[in-house]
Amino acid sequence: MTTATAPSKPGRVAASLPQTARDIAVITQRNLLRNVRLPQLIILSTIQPIMFLLLFNYVFGGAIGGTLPEAAGGEYINWLIPGLLVQVAAFGAGQTALGLAEDLSKGVIDRFRSLPMARSAVLAGRTFSDLIRNGFVIGLMLVVGFVIGFRYQTSFAGLVAGLALAMVFSFAFSWIMATIGLIVKNPEAAQQAVFLPVFPLVFASSVFVPTQTMPSWLRAFADNQPVTVTVDALRGLILGDGALLPGNTVEGQVLLSLLYAGAILAVFVPLSVRVYRRTVN
């Protein structure tokens, strides 16, 4: 995780692994405290997806219910929950951009950059704390889902695996958002900027409805983009093979989703660290 580029010289203090881990823990704790001390933040960001859940379920449920694969057990809520878990993961990751932009604009990042701490800790601490936060919101969603009728159709292990995959996706997405936040810098602008990638990915996907009725050019994108792949993987894990497009397997979708996450991390972790090191406010 250290980002030292020059060879070690005498007197050079390279961030050791334990130091890096400790710095990440310090920053993660700091960020999480914000959620605890300003509970309205997390309450508001939980209300929104729950509202989505209720609206979509009761407004569209009746109309869409009949067109769903059998694996959904005839209930739109069963189809919707895996999709919304991924949607929450994507929108929640947007908080990473906001948090970093806020720290930048308040000069906190300047302080961090003048301290002998691991360079990667500010970003890693931010993405970890957002992961924990998103895990909390995802859990809450699931509870509300259960209350209004959601039932997994495979096994409890399948459900847990699905949740884990949503978290992996959320973490990878956070690093894209970190890069955006560092480039945009201004919190208000960052708020707008995160919607640019998130909206098309979430709506041109299988989150709310099956992709079959989309025009073919859109379907080509929708079926293969990371949100759909991850949503389908979750559906396979939670609802069974029958929820997938013909020819797709659960293992295949899970693997593809993990590959997407890995590719995103491979590009955006080094990229955001690079931008962070160069950022001058």
Partner: peptide, 18 residues
């Protein structure tokens, strides 16, 4: 050349409270 080592030796209070 060695910003990391320099950070070990300095303290900074910027123009605006961080």
């Amino acid at each position: 050349a060695d910003p990391k080592a320099a950070r070990q030796k300095i303290g900074l209070a910027g123009q605006f409270a961080a």
